[in-house]
Design a protein around this nucleic acid. Structure first.
Length: 424
RNA sequence: GGCGGGUUGCCCGAGCGGCCAAUGGGAGCGGACUGUAAAUCCGUCGGGAAACCUUCGCAGGUUCGAAUCCUGCACCCGCCA
């Protein structure tokens, strides 16, 4: 598998830094750069939507499919009910089964646009509940459990880290389920490769070992690196919480802004991990950033590409347009009614009727502050703006003349949080 | 089963009868500097315009007055069995 410039899939992935750990690197290369194979990557339904932290896996699966391999996208209806003990110090709160089942459907829908489901190497959705749900306790303990030495299970980092603080048998068993998934997918779909985030390495190798113990295989695996941020904070969090892929949970505008605001030092990594641009294009962007960082060219290109991938090109264009209108140099009063409406809708629009309220009330209604005190504080700190002019009097009633195009107000908190108001 | 320790604001963590809406740190938020970046510095961080109201696991009680004392309940963590 290689493109017309002779760069193989593995070469490209190595350059991008997508391979953190792998079983036998030479074998992995032969496998991935050879004939089409079937691979799987799993997503557990632990929330109603995937977030940018999951994007690495989604995009990598797409990369492999574009290179000609056959994807199995597993949404863990079974494992999602058990809970991966990894990456946390306390027991998970189990969600009701019907909630998890609902999330499975949503996440399946969410994954769909990233992959192709027809053609020679069509992707397939699978759910481990299909083979785990009916497994009896006796069968599970005899057929699966017998292959897992507890001493090895305990030695795995994720379990070891929890031994002090506590881990239930439920979560302790998680690795058996994931290992069994690999075996089942190997038997049912001839799946020979699993990948996942580096936090999944233990679970993944448990699967590789298990397949071998059952006399099948060989199967291969690799993990993608944890996305790190230069400032040491967690990737994916931005003002107020996670950045979700679901447009009702994180608007396309906010999603676009998430990427635009990426730290200069992180952008080169993000481009490699998430973008489908070529190596030459990426290196070009890096050069541009080094020369004129304030132009944020790389951030903008990255933000557009990822937003278009996740939300479609139309939404991405809207986000760009809104960003230009709101952050642009020009005066807001120069914007047309249509542009204002569209831009503010992207940022979040609130409607008010009749008399315009005080700025404190308006800031609250627009959702920029969480209480009246918060609004007053923000104004006192000089962080509240109406139509890009700093608000100084919290009790001021907004005059009719402030309405842009006779009906819009642009509220801003701090440097970059906008909200629109439309008087109807 | 026994003994001891713990449960405080988003998180960590002081407080141990009034001066406590509760020290300190982190996160968050705002300002300055910039580039919608980083670093740094400053400010802010329950609700209320205020009076004042609601918070310190839950429910009662003692007291003029409790996060602080007592009783019961729940959960967590050690040590012993």
């Amino acid at each position: 598998m290689q493109d017309n410039q002779g760069v193989t899939l593995v070469d490209d992935m190595l350059w991008r830094g997508l391979i953190q750990d792998s079983t036998d690197p030479d074998e992995l290369r032969k496998h991935l750069d050879g004939d089409a194979i079937t691979f799987y990557v799993g997503f557990d339904p632990t929330a109603a939507s995937l977030h940018v932290g999951n994007l690495m896996q989604v995009v990598t699966a797409r990369r492999l499919q574009l290179a000609g391999h056959n994807p199995l996208l597993l949404v863990g209806g079974a494992t999602g009910q058990i809970g991966d003990p990894g990456g946390r110090s306390t027991e998970r709160q189990l969600n009701p089964q019907d909630v998890t089942a609902g999330w499975v459907l949503r996440i399946r829908d969410q994954l769909t646009p990233f992959m192709t489901f027809d053609g020679d190497n069509a992707a397939t959705m699978v759910n481990n509940l299909d083979w785990t749900g009916e497994l009896s306790v006796i069968d599970f303990l005899r057929d699966v459990g017998k292959h897992f030495p507890v001493n090895k299970m305990i030695a795995r980092d994720v379990v070891k880290n929890r031994l002090e603080t506590g881990i239930s048998f439920t979560e302790f068993s998680y690795q058996l389920l994931q290992a069994n998934d690999f075996y089942e997918l190997h038997s049912r779909h001839d799946c020979s490769l699993q990948f996942g985030g580096s936090d999944q390495w233990g679970n993944i190798t448990a699967g590789v070992d298990y397949v071998r113990r059952r006399g099948a295989g060989p199967v291969f695996a690799f993990t993608t690196p944890l996305v790190l941020k230069a400032d040491g904070t967690k990737f994916g969090k931005s003002a107020g919480g996670a950045t979700w892929l679901d447009p009702t949970m994180t608007s396309p505008y906010a999603f676009y802004q998430f990427w635009v605001n990426a730290d200069d030092r992180d952008v080169p990594h993000y481009l490699r991990y998430f973008s489908f641009k070529t190596r030459e294009e990426i290196e070009e962007l890096e050069k541009a950033t080094a020369e004129r960082p304030q132009a944020r060219l790389a951030q903008k290109e990255l933000a557009f590409e990822i937003t278009a991938l996740v939300h479609g090109e139309e939404e991405a264009n809207q986000a760009v347009m809104a960003s230009q209108a709101l952050f642009g140099r020009g005066s807001l009063s120069d914007l047309s009614a249509d542009t204002l409406r569209a831009a503010l809708s992207e940022a979040g629009m609130t409607q008010v009727r009749g008399e315009l309220p005080t700025v404190v009330a308006l800031l609250q209604e627009a959702g920029l502050v969480k209480s009246g005190g918060d609004a007053r504080r923000t104004i006192a700190e000089g962080g509240a703006y109406l139509n890009n002019e700093r608000i100084t009097d919290p009790e001021a009633v907004i005059p009719e003349s402030a309405l842009l195009q006779g009906r819009f107000l642009v509220l801003r908190k701090g440097k970059r949080t906008f909200a629109g108001v439309e008087r109807v």
